[in-house]
Amino acid sequence: MKTYQPALAAPLLVGLYGAIRLLPGSKEPEAGWLLGHAALLAGLLLFVPVLLELRRRVASRLLSTVALTVAGTGLAASVGQTLIDLWVGAVAVDKADQRRLFGEVQDVPGVLPVFYTVLPTLFYLGLLVLLFAAVRRIPVWSPLLVLVATVMMAMDLDLMTPGALLFALALRPLTGSAGVPGRPVTA
């Protein structure tokens, strides 16, 4: 049976980031900050093959291409945000310097909507469209779990780890080990 590991590894690495960010000192420019953001970056990058696999499972090429483009745009913005966060964490000497550097970066026109507020949300929107469009080949509860997890994490970043675990559960049918056979797509 074919397994598809990025579908589990991606959300679990995001969940690791969520767990690390709850540890004391992890919000300072220290090892916890860098380790957490490195895990987040790896998790985000692993969502690329997950999105491509979901696209493959959607019957409509037009819908899947649009949803993949939307999700990919949001994912690229999230990767950009994570790279900014990693850079600030690597060069800042203390919390005050970290705040100053973030202020300088985020004061550049367009940075906040592109990397922090607007475009990153497109990842979740595109992912949800792909999941809902693929329900003929995955269980209907998969997109519902992702929707619940997304709302949880949007409400409070401290819920990132439980949200990521819901993502892992939702994406488990993509691994081939969930015991849920893919349903054929009919034209």
Rank of each mutant, 00 (worst) to 15 (best):
S60A: 04
A96Q: 10
D107Y: 00
L34V: 12
F47I: 07
K27A: 11
V93A: 15
V70P: 01
R57P: 04
E104M: 13
L62D: 04
R61Y: 05
F102L: 11
V88W: 00
A31N: 04
V111W: 06
L75W: 02
V50L: 03
L54R: 05
Q98A: 06
R56L: 09
D107H: 12
Y116M: 15
K27R: 15
S60N: 01
L63N: 02
A77C: 12
G72W: 00
R100S: 05
S26L: 06
A92S: 15
G72Y: 02
T73N: 14
L40H: 07
E28G: 06
G25Q: 13
R61L: 10
S60R: 00
W33S: 04
P49W: 04
L41I: 05
T69R: 07
V93Y: 15
Q81T: 03
T82I: 09
A76M: 10
Q98L: 12
V88M: 06
E30L: 15
V105T: 04
R61S: 14
V66H: 07
R56D: 13
T82Y: 10
A71K: 10
L35I: 15
L119T: 12
A67K: 13
L22P: 05
D107C: 12
V50F: 03
D107K: 13
F47L: 08
L83H: 00
E104K: 03
V91A: 13
Q98F: 07
V48K: 01
S60M: 00
K95V: 11
L52E: 06
D97Y: 05
A59Y: 03
P49A: 04
L22F: 07
Q81D: 09
P109R: 01
L52N: 03
G72K: 01
L83M: 13
E104I: 15
V118G: 15
W33N: 02
G72P: 00
L86N: 02
L75N: 14
L52K: 07
G74D: 09
A92F: 00
A92I: 09
A90H: 03
L40G: 12
D94F: 09
A71L: 03
R100Q: 12
L23S: 15
L46H: 03
L54T: 07
P49L: 14
A92G: 08
V91N: 11
K27G: 10
T65P: 00
L40W: 08
A67Y: 02
R21C: 11
D94A: 05
S26C: 04
A31P: 00
D107N: 10
L45R: 05
A31V: 08
E53C: 12
